[in-house]
């Protein structure tokens, strides 16, 4: 699968990454190379093989319903780019 400029634009938007127009072609080529590597997978028939999402056959452990966390807003917001009145600020969200 070879990616073109439009593909890169689409996935860059999904991933919220700004890509300079001048870099589009180079990125498309790099990604296409990687996909070529990846597509070696197609050489093997995986019909009937179950997908494996986790290396171990473990199941989800359940936590007791207890409040264990205390308010650490000050510490967490000390590393935030912009806050006011305890809120994180972002450019206006239009709904």
């Amino acid at each position: 699968m070879s990616l073109d400029r439009a593909d890169v634009e689409k996935i860059a938007h999904l991933a919220r990454l700004e890509v300079e127009p001048d870099d589009m072609a180079a990125i498309a080529a790099e990604l296409s190379n990687i996909l070529e590597l990846v597509e070696q997978m197609n050489a093997v028939d995986t019909e009937g093989v179950a997908p494996m999402a986790h290396p171990l056959h473990m199941v989800q452990r359940l936590r007791a319903d207890e409040v264990t966390e205390t308010n650490r807003r000050e510490a967490f917001q000390a590393i935030a780019p912009q806050t006011e009145a305890g809120l994180y600020l972002v450019p206006k969200v239009i709904e």
Binding site: L3, D7, V8, I11, A12, L14, A15, L17, I27, E30, L31, I34, L35, V38, M41, N42, V44, T46, V49, A50, P51, M52, A53, P55
Partner: peptide
């Protein structure tokens, strides 16, 4: 680069061919 590749592999229409295929191969390797 990796974010873009990963986004692509999970995106609509490619999930089965890339992500699921890779998970199946993971099984074979295991």
């Amino acid at each position: 680069r990796r974010i873009l590749i990963g986004t692509y592999a999970l995106s609509a229409g490619y999930y089965d061919a890339y992500y699921l295929k890779a998970q199946r191969i993971r099984h074979l390797i295991s």
